[in-house]
Design a binder for these strands. Structure first.
Lengths: 194, 194, 194, 194
DNA sequence: TATGAATGAGATTTCATTCAT
DNA sequence: TATGAATGAAATCTCATTCAT
């Protein structure tokens, strides 16, 4: 009990830093200087490096957090009555999350922690997609990995239109999801990635 | 005569530089140092700045070139017999182009030249889409701007999968295009962007 | 009684810290971070600064300790039967000590405590050398200060040969001591330092 | 001819930098900041890194220069009439050189260029010592490598005495050289290093 | 008293851009 | 006109030291 208080402080600062980093990255991209993040968090530059020895570690922490939350969501939705609606809701929530910050959490080597978090997410999403496919809610030839990469689309797309309204991603998610439905599906020219 | 050869030289250097920049950006991203581009072109660093006063100008020139070529393609396809196939071919060619270098040519302020080139592209693509929509080849509620942003998707998506096969983008273009077809289209939650 | 145990604790920590610092400096040089010393001692970083307000103070304490021990040794040997053998043994022990950690304890301003310890060592070594010289064990023109600086040689020399065997210093101490003997001594071009 | 002038400038700056680095290292040790060297040379910080991509490269260049000059000297003296005097002169010159800056040029991995320069020096000094030994000018059991490491002694020793007169090293070189003479040589306890 | 979180000055290094030759 | 040397403003990261708990 006695040693909780200093740690509470450190935990609070860690949160402050993550929030500041998310905000700063959202505004200026991942090239935002660490100093700006520290300033935004109201902390010293060195404190950032105490919590995250490398800038990459900071990025990895954010990604990890995000991926973990998505995994939890996918698992929650894994037992929903309507498997198709569950998948759509997952993709919707994922896009809404990504609207805040679009760090691509699939690329690059961000360390083992992120890698295993990604593996868990992949598994959870695959389960979600498999179920939707079995119920005929999505086309036969779509896989969990497909959804994993496609769920980034709506936000990526909107990034290209600087002045666009905040909710525009919903439009493209809808178009994309129509492409995943069984109705009017044409055969795909390439096999799904591993 | 005397002043023709220097101009020919300058034009050749400009081409060399653009090619070198495309290659360098493709390999190392837009953060590739100007020095590397100069070296690759077999020219001095100062020559780069003589042709392109700023690194951004160099990027803008590449984007401009690319956009202009796409505009020409869109115009060529504007008279094809099958409007739907023409649109698909346009998006396919655009994706194939982008496979080489995925500078997002829609974002950011790259100067007036790029802006007007973008406007022309927008106009040409809108014509293409309008025609396809009138023939019933794509859904009623899709616009030229939609296609303009969506045609970046296949490559953007594949970027997230480092080890993926080179042609994987074809898979996602197919899914996406199925989403643009009239069959099984669900109403879209947001209006198209301007 | 009540205040005895904290003092005992403090003394123990001081020793732990000195030992850890010696080890760390030996492995990584004086640039070894204070944090590493604290970790090696199993103490907090703050504790280091409680005992030694400055990193320099920590270095000074080590030097002081070392110098004091050498002084004791020199005094012990001051009454030995064979004055020449006593001097050789002193230099041998000094070199062996220095093999563990070669902080040069003569250079720099390390504070008054070190300065006075150095003065005492100087006096003791001078006595040792004077006696050896009187007995004809060393050449006429050699002084205590000469020995003081020369006794660092064997280790300094070996430092230049990274892969050298641990005992190589003995070779160079032998050569050096031969240079201090009266046999075959040539006149020295410069007077001894103060 | 026409392209000599820009290079002349660069060469001059390179020399300026080397000189400034030697001076700065001599005053403040190798930990002297690169910025200080640049300032002393009257050049920008970036210019240092144009000439020497790394601080280590700068150190290596200095060492290389020094080693190369010593090699030339050793070779020059290799044909002198009096082999013993030649060796003494070599060690004297080496010490005088080192008096300006005592970068230990034997330790550490400074890159292949330095390594090969060191090898050449070693060979030249070995020739010098072998000849002296054959003429009976130095003791039987001394090698080129011994001299290579011992020639650093006089300066190392004097470093420990901050206020000492500039020529004090001559005194210790004399003592050391007496230790290398055949007269009064005692057997050495350790074999020579490779 | 002991701890270790926070600090911030400073070190190395990169790179777009300028300018003398 | 072409070159590449010079510049200096960041950016990342380290570490001695302070201070709240």
């Amino acid at each position: 009990m006695a040693d909780v208080s200093p740690r509470a402080d450190a935990a609070r600062n860690r949160s402050l830093l993550l929030a500041a980093a998310v905000a700063e990255f959202a505004e200026h991209g991942v090239d935002a200087p660490v100093a700006a993040i520290a300033r935004r968090a109201g902390l010293g530059k060195g404190t950032v490096f105490r919590h995250f020895p490398t800038k990459d570690d900071l990025v990895a922490a954010i990604v990890c957090d995000r991926v973990t939350r998505l995994t939890a969501l996918a698992r929650d939705l894994g037992t929903a009555a309507d498997a198709g609606a569950a998948l759509l809701e997952f993709m919707t929530s994922a896009a809404r999350e990504r609207q805040r910050l679009d760090l691509s959490f699939l690329t690059g080597d961000l360390g083992s922690e992120v890698t295993s978090a990604q593996a868990e997410l992949s598994e959870a999403v695959t389960a979600l997609v498999d179920r939707a496919r079995e119920r005929g809610a999505v086309r036969d030839d779509v896989t969990g990995t497909d959804v994993l990469v496609l769920m980034c689309v709506p936000n990526d797309v909107v990034k290209h239109l600087p002045g666009a309204p905040a909710q525009l991603w919903e439009r493209y998610l809808a178009i994309l999801f129509d492409g995943l439905r069984p109705e009017g599906a044409h055969p795909l020219p390439q096999p799904p990635p591993a």
